[in-house]
Design a protein around this nucleic acid. Structure first.
Lengths: 140, 140
DNA sequence: ATGCTTGCAAACGGTTTGCACGTGT
DNA sequence: ACACGTGCAAACCGTTTGCAAGCAT
């Protein structure tokens, strides 16, 4: 009875409830094209899937997940916030201006350089965000 | 009669009006600690300075400036948007989590790497944002 | 049993907009 | 003169919150 989702919730110190499980499941299993969902996205997805969970709850759950470190919140363009599972690997994003699609990438060199820069400027680095904006060749 | 501010506005194809000049002046001359102001910041600054320009106009002017490429808009944390003059040099930011203060830096190496990555992923890069979050030693 | 969770609907805060008036060219 | 810019107040939209009812432990 202790599947991965349940464990994740317990590990985060959160009571295991249906909304929390469903939201976590959605974020876990959407394929790469649909990652980085907004609260609305999650809401609509769940409605379509037959669940009946209020938008307010989605927001509350996502906020808790963020605080618990299960999820990362992004504000790519400025409109609505998007969420993705925190997989541990600190990755960056590239957003297609035409389709809105988000891809991920990592780069050791940049990562190292960022550490160095923070140190040189006299900061203790807690986090960073690198996002590229462009037009994917595929979108033409 | 054609000072820098006026030229900038004309160059951007914008009619020279008092609100536009004042907003541009504020953004031009605030010292480093006060750069990256929110619309409210600009509004309060101008009120204090004796101007009487509505907040709605500040928003409209800032939006036009952004469209005209005079100004860059940031959404650092997610709360309110902040604006800064576009000085041409594509710089990055480091935000102190304790004081909210924003510093700038540039790095040729990272810049080059970013170009490479975009190309490799099949994107035509239009822009990018790199923001570090940390605690400044000075804030302790 | 009891304290955390949820749904609902109302509040919120930053930002945008319709309208009638004012202003730059 | 005429089109564009502005102030005001109301609308907007994503997100948050107070409250009463519902669950997990």
């Amino acid at each position: 009875m202790t599947d991965q989702t349940t464990q994740d919730l317990k590990g985060a110190g959160l009571k295991v409830t249906l909304p929390r499980m469903r939201v976590l499941e959605v974020l876990s299993k959407v394929d790469d094209n649909d990652r980085h969902m907004s609260a609305e996205d999650v809401y609509r997805y769940l409605m379509t899937a037959g669940d009946d969970i209020s938008l307010a709850t989605i927001y509350r759950v996502l906020t808790q997940f963020e605080a618990a470190g299960l999820v990362i919140k992004h504000h790519f363009d400025g409109g609505t916030a998007r969420y993705e599972l925190d997989t541990g690997d600190n990755h960056n994003h590239i957003v297609c201006m035409k389709t809105g699609r988000v891809e991920e990438f990592t780069d050791k060199e940049i990562e190292a350089k960022i550490q160095t820069i923070a140190r040189e400027l006299g900061y203790e680095l807690t986090d960073y965000k690198l996002t590229l904006y462009g037009v994917s060749q595929e979108a033409l």
